[in-house]
Amino acid sequence: MSNILTFIELTADGAPRSSAAALLQRASQLGTPVAVIAIGPAHRDAAVTALGALGVEQVAVLASESADGAVGSAQTDAVAAAVDAFSPTVVLLPHSAEGRDVAGRVAARLGAGIVVDAIDLRADGDSVHVTTSAFGGAFTVDSVVEGGLAVITMRQAAAGEAAAAVQATVTELGSQQSTPAAVVEARTGGAAASGRPDLRSASVVVSGGRGVGSKENFALVEQLADVLRGAVGASRVAVDSGYAAQALQVGQTGRTVSPDLYIALGISGAIQHRAGMQTAKTIVAINTDADAPIFDIADFGVVGDLFSVVPQLIPAIEARTR
């Protein structure tokens, strides 16, 4: 089987980020995953151990003091060096802020072909078929890379069952001719962990829009999400109005989600919002306006006031699940 280089994003102290497990599982469906990391020397061993715990047998490490001070630079060098060392046919990266930067730089540096935001991969002889979606899931696109290395970023997905822990074998990567990089001046740990599933891979998403009316009222959206063990989402207006964090925006210019259940509260269903959620298996909408376009794609619509429906819905669902 061929080597599938898999770029793993790490926190500054060496913990694999949430994208890692699902990405590695993808890689192992195509070949032998080789995890590639760039990390400050002090946290190197912790990172290798953490990857072993995810079932990774081979780790390629670039230990570099600049790994978390220079944006994406050591990471790009690590992947480029690992391509030299392992001659893979495919490099997989998460379609995240960092993953995209590294993928773009690596593809340009190495003259590789690049396909981004993949939702599925399939090996076919020597080539890999990559499935992406276009225009909010209205079209499904199948691509291949011809003439060399394929660099592919994967949309975040839920991880399957965890692999058994192993002791990873380590390959040290040599430093490369870096491209100058931006530097990190300050870091503020994102939103405090909410304990909710990741929006991008959650099986239930409850989103609120302008109709929710305020940041305080958004607690109602969160409570409904919590009884369903779901993630919280928001429309662009809700984000612009400060009801919800930017990372929660669903739509054309926000996250694309495809959960089993999507509940839209006080969201009109503008075409740009639908572009981020219309591939959900089941859509429920609660809106006071019977003509709201969200109802055109809802499997179940309630024409009603969310402030009267949701407070009754929460205990009713709780009663079921108990």
Partner: peptide, 23 residues
């Protein structure tokens, strides 16, 4: 350089709305 080539494009069927009830 290597390049990516689109081999197939498939349109997804449009969604059909379900029941809409007035509260």
């Amino acid at each position: 350089a290597a390049r990516s080539i689109v081999v197939e494009v498939v349109e997804r069927p449009a969604r059909v709305a379900g029941p809409k009830i007035v509260d």
